[in-house]
Design a protein around this nucleic acid. Structure first.
Lengths: 212, 212
DNA sequence: CCTACCGATCGGTAGG
DNA sequence: CCTACCGATCGGTAGG
């Protein structure tokens, strides 16, 4: 008479697999996942694991979904109490760096690593990570446009260029931390992000160097 | 009486394998290399391929060596006619972007992708890519220091922060091109690199936003 | 959710 | 440089 134990339990098992897979993928990559190893980790049979997804690729997409949700929750949603504009962008720089610094799934940013791992492999995984990143960048561009409209950034600021720089600095922070264990770079990245949002050097600055 | 054909021929075969492996690794990753596939591509037996390296890891290190050489030649050495300082740094921004834009081994920058692929896997490959990138960053920092000493950059400029930003922007350009096919981002990245070297915003710029 | 199994491929070795 | 082979593991299926 168990009240359909299988439904709730299956959902829990599903989550447990995806969460474990995210941890593995965080260091081994999404392609480095194997059903067999995951089954051993979670103490299930291979077919028990595979039954939840149907294929390795479907599992990869589930892991990516989890990574996107976690990123959105930690970087974007945690600034939802702020009104749109420069203030929220500054807060996002902080939550973004903090997200990287905490190493959510035990390794670096899964969106960044998946983007690089799959950028040369056409298919659903590449499409999914590309569209997730594109949505994120468009969200940020909208914030920049709002900031410009509010007079918080100069009218000649270019949203795409500003967002490009913020994303690049986040990638730099990710590499510094994961490859070199360089915590100090988190501050460097944060300062550089704030400089990008300071209204200085949004347009080409190719004049002569200032006198020393 | 062939004049030790085996020596020269073996060297050529070795190069052919490594070059092919670099092309494969450029889209599949260094861990995605397999001896069997490489052997089929190059039309040799598996053991014929493996005999040149001894192990897959040794092959990976050879590919990384090739990638480091190519990067050094195309980005650094091609600016060797310039004297050290800001002028050479500006030229490096151009050769760096050009190197990324050309997609040397058919995919993205192998140093960037290997760094991300192996940052969570301790071992010789991780050590090799980390030390190659560290040497590159130190080379750039020395150029920044020279520029400061020559009065081409402000004395309060922080070499590590400037190099961090240049490297981050290169990673951003790599992602934009490989994941989104965004050629326009090459110009965005180049402009942002030049802004970093313009003497503006080297120190924290956290004041109030400029009036609109 | 399991056991049992499939063909394919992995990195690597033996021996020549 | 080759053939022939090793044990291990891969993603996935059949059948329950």
């Amino acid at each position: 008479m168990s009240p359909r134990r299988s439904v709730a339990a299956a959902r829990e098992t599903h989550s447990a697999i995806v969460e474990r897979a995210a941890v593995v993928a965080s260091t081994e990559g999404l392609e480095g996942l194997t059903i067999g190893r995951l089954a051993a980790d979670i103490e299930m049979s291979k077919s028990g694991v595979l039954g939840h997804f149907g294929s390795k690729q479907a599992l990869q997409l589930s892991v990516l979904d989890l990574a996107v949700s976690a990123f959105g929750r930690e970087v974007w949603e945690s600034t939802s109490d702020l009104r749109s504009g420069r203030g929220r962008l500054l807060a996002i720089c902080d939550t973004w760096i903090s997200y990287l610094d905490r190493g959510v799934f035990g390794g670096g940013c899964l969106l960044t690593s998946t983007a690089l791992e799959f950028d040369g492999r056409p298919g659903p995984v590449r499409d999914a990570v590309a569209s997730a990143l594109r949505r994120w960048y468009e969200l940020l561009e909208a914030q920049v446009e709002t900031a410009i409209a509010l007079g918080e950034l100069p009218t000649e600021a270019e949203p795409a260029a500003i967002v490009f720089q913020l994303a690049a600095l986040a990638m730099g922070a990710n590499q510094a931390l994961q490859l070199f264990g360089d915590r100090a770079a988190m501050h460097t990245a944060r300062d550089a992000m704030r400089a990008v949002l300071s209204g200085c050097s949004h347009k080409r600055a190719v004049g002569p160097p200032p006198a020393a």
